[in-house]
Design a protein around this nucleic acid. Structure first.
Lengths: 338, 338
DNA sequence: TGCGCGCGCCCGGCTGGGCAGAGTGCTGAA
DNA sequence: TTCAGCACTCTGCCCAGCCGGGCGCGCGCA
């Protein structure tokens, strides 16, 4: 695409993201292209519309970027915006105050992200493909109830209540836990499963089965923790003035199961992913853009961090700030051993 | 108040909660008072308006209950509605699937409550005045780093990385953990603190200090664990058609600090509390009603459970279902030892 | 071929008047 | 005390008309 068309498309996107009203040739001429006439701009706009990058809400209204227009913008035209000092300071300060557990940390991260992007945010807890057992503990709750505590790689704690047939005292359980630690320490779920299948360890087979199940469940992420925040920010956007639009987004955000699947599907190999409007598989997110990246304390433990807003969002700012939050959160989590 | 006025007020509230349009004398006459003329009803309505229980959006519109009208209704006129079998079944089933940790349980409770009341729900984690230590574990991470795992009453896991001066092996740490369990098991934070202050136990003083700090943080933190759900339900109500109304509610719900204070202030001695519209201290909740009760696994561990909706809410249904969820959750939590 | 200029056109949004409907308040009679 | 009738008032809705922004197109020029 010629340089001038690109500039005009960039100007349209920029103008529309701030004003939210269709942008006309005159506005562009007076604010961006003083040495071009509005008629020239009009013909360029018409061609951009032919290419599918711009659309008109109705004849003789200004132009609005289409989903492909935004796509072209983020792929080729977007210049990465530096994060202002006060914003990075704010991010650092917020994350510094985050509690040292996964849940609290993830919530704080989502909160911070929503605040700095002024959009809605989602965050899933970091989890690895292969969870390694670091430590096992068994605590007697009731005579026939035992709490299994699994410490996984990344200092992730998982807990599960087990019903056992025979009553076991705490000392008995502690002895068993020591044996389990010796056998399972450092093992990933498939190794634990082998132990389970061979069952030559003299360990309670049922217990091992439960541990395998807990690891599986953890790995599937079906139980994985997803939080969201900042829905109130969306309400400030004219796109969400009619409540139906927001309702659809909320259906996605509040339905955790659905959100988990969505995040897993969306996050691919790439480091930063932008999904715009109709590119979203789910019909509820038409008109919304989702910007996603990964974060986590280590390379093997990654969660998803994302921003959800109208397609008319300040992409370059969002990308930069999302990156800053992801980086800050990753560092902080590594530091805290979360 | 005479009997007939009461019936008419009750009818107006009932009619308005379902239809959401101001109710006129003819609608009342045809649906509730066939043996009265609309003129008679009109004069009664006028008197109810004089008493401050009803208002007109404008002259020659139907009547709408005022906040005091709702107040009178819930105080004197409301008949408690039985919870349908399928709803109680749904509640039981949902709570049965709840995970065995506090966070997960609270989230499930909020979700269930939102589903059965078709309004927004809030839930704070049950917390006592004193957190009790149930189990302590120490895991060696690095030569000079130890992970302290605290299992507190309510199966709440806390973890913290400790830096220690002298390298300790896992067996050494396990032995220490056994000693700690024997000493601290079942103790609340002030008892731990006494142990800490007397320091006559031969235990590492620094370690005890960390445990005390973790308990303190927990006591503060668990109080602030507040979740909400069901905002999407509010969007179905015409009251929230203009997004500004919902925005105000979301400011309250998403600002956890604020919500914590709100719940603490609102929950008084009474078992079930209803706060209607202008009775709310916070200006953001004008036009909203909040129904609150307490729940928890024991008398010492209580959290707050609440429903937030428009003042035009089905109070008797909400109260009954809130009560059912609170009861079910309390039982389930006691059962799971959460 | 690219650009600038100006004219005519088109369409959505706003405004103001008229109309129907719903609901009230009042009055007088049973 | 109840009730029928009547006048009044206010809103919501519809429609016509105006307005203005923005475009498309044709023409002239380098």
């Amino acid at each position: 695409m010629e340089n001038r068309k690109q500039s005009i498309l960039r100007a349209v996107v920029k103008e529309f993201t701030t004003s939210a009203v269709p942008v006309g040739s005159q506005a562009l001429q007076s604010r961006y292209f003083v040495n071009l006439s509005s008629a020239t701009i009009r013909s360029e706009l018409a061609e951009l519309a032919d290419l599918g990058y711009l659309a008109q809400p109705h004849t003789s209204a200004g132009r609005v970027p289409t989903d492909s227009g935004y796509r072209y913008f983020v792929d080729f035209l977007m210049d990465v915006e530096a994060v202002p000092d006060n914003v990075s300071l704010f991010i650092r300060e917020e994350l510094r105050q985050a509690p040292a557990d996964v849940q609290g940390m993830v919530e704080k991260v989502a909160m911070t992200l929503a605040a700095v992007t002024q959009n809605a945010s989602v965050a899933s807890a970091p989890h690895g493909t292969q969870a390694r057992v670091k430590h096992v503990d068994l605590v007697s709750l009731e005579p026939t109830e035992v709490l299994l505590i699994l410490l996984l790689e990344g200092n992730l704690l998982r807990q599960q209540v087990l019903k056992v047939a025979d009553a076991a005292t705490q000392p008995e359980l502690s002895t068993l836990a020591v044996r389990l630690n010796a056998t399972l320490g450092g093992k990933a779920s498939d190794e634990v499963r082998r132990s389970y299948e061979s069952a030559a360890l003299g360990l309670d087979k049922e217990l091992l089965g439960t541990i395998v199940a807990a690891l599986d469940q953890y790995e599937k992420g079906s139980e994985s923790l997803v939080v969201h925040d900042g829905v109130r920010n969306l309400l400030r956007q004219p796109e969400f003035a009619e409540s139906i639009r927001l309702q659809q987004v909320l259906e996605v955000l509040e339905e955790t199961r659905y959100l988990t699947v969505l995040l897993r599907e969306l996050i691919g190999e790439s480091d930063m992913q932008i999904v715009i409007g109709s590119e979203n598989a789910s019909s509820q997110l038409q008109g919304c853009a989702v910007v996603l990246t990964t974060y986590g304390p280590s390379n093997r433990l990654k969660g998803v961090l994302g921003v959800i807003g109208p397609t008319r969002m300040a992409y370059s700012q969002t990308v930069a700030r999302l990156q800053a939050v992801a980086l800050g959160a990753s560092e902080r989590m590594a530091e805290l051993g979360v």
